[in-house]
Amino acid sequence: MSQIKIGASKGNVLVSVAEKGYGNLFLCSKCRNAANCECGGKLQIVGTGKVPRCYICYKAHNDWRCNFCGGNLPYVISKGIERLAEEIGRALPKIPLLVSSGTKQIRLMPKGNHIVLATAGSEPQDLYAAVILFDGERIVNRPFLRSEELARHSWFSILNRSLDLAEVFISLPNKHPLTQSLLRSDSSYLVKQILKERKTAKLPPFFRMAVVTGIKKDISKFSENLKSATTYEVNGPIDIDSSNSKIIIRASLEESSKFVDMLDDVVRLQGLKGKSVFQIRLDPFDL
């Protein structure tokens, strides 16, 4: 809170938060087991004094008790922007506090010194005397391909809105590549790390990749043919639902033209035969 206090004495303070909502995931405070609904969905708390609700079926659990030990005291481990605003407001009650997120975005800051909490892309246009980058580990470890890349883009954009000599707090270890990039004001440091990891994992831009989705039996047959007749690396089939599955295909850059032509021929042949056509994503943004 010290950086927020110092910043608020000089101007506006921006607190960047990963998620909207209140208590997006909670455990039993007694046994630390996750709070689940009968349908298997995780329970969320949508606001102060609100009852837990399933994020899948939306069932309200008015008298929630832990399925494992019977405890009834929640322990929130994934705090949304509303919960953090509540905690900061209690710690610094004399400083006006604003929330910019989702459909309730603030474009321009009002006069005076304020603390504004914002999710990515919802930051008001202003220059800030302090920038607090919360939820670093949660952001860079999100389970999709470009989590660090998106974190880098978001945090560098936010720091471009800070005043000279602004207070900055980064919620990642000092040795983390993203922290080092921010400290050096040099995004190339992290980019080099990401490219090195992508080369090891055989991802674009060092390999061509295609995600092919279709009816299970068709995908299974296509996968077997590829594995037996080509040098392409094939992962899967991976079930999507009861009817569809997908495979992930990698090819070297030297085979790029041949690889794309092969995929084009497969789809064209399916169309001519009146079969269900594969959905193909080439070098996808995410898997």
Rank of each mutant, 00 (worst) to 15 (best):
F169L: 08
C57E: 12
S9I: 02
N72D: 15
E38S: 11
V267P: 03
I77V: 15
C57V: 11
L163A: 04
Y58T: 15
E197M: 10
K42L: 14
L73A: 07
I56S: 13
L25P: 01
N33M: 12
P74E: 13
P110H: 03
V260L: 12
G274W: 01
T200P: 00
A8E: 12
G23P: 02
I215Y: 06
A166V: 00
G236I: 10
A166G: 02
P52C: 10
N62V: 14
Q125H: 05
D239N: 13
N33A: 04
C39N: 11
N141T: 04
L253M: 14
S245H: 03
L282K: 03
T119A: 12
I88T: 11
N141H: 11
A210C: 11
A85D: 09
K192T: 14
D261Y: 08
N24A: 04
Q270A: 09
K5R: 12
K217E: 11
N235C: 06
K273L: 12
D218V: 02
K227G: 11
I240R: 05
N113F: 09
S243G: 08
V260F: 06
L263C: 06
K275I: 05
K199V: 14
I280R: 04
P173M: 06
S276M: 04
R152G: 13
N33G: 02
C28A: 13
S188T: 15
R281H: 10
R65C: 09
Y58W: 09
R184I: 15
Q270R: 08
S243M: 08
K20M: 14
N12C: 01
G121A: 05
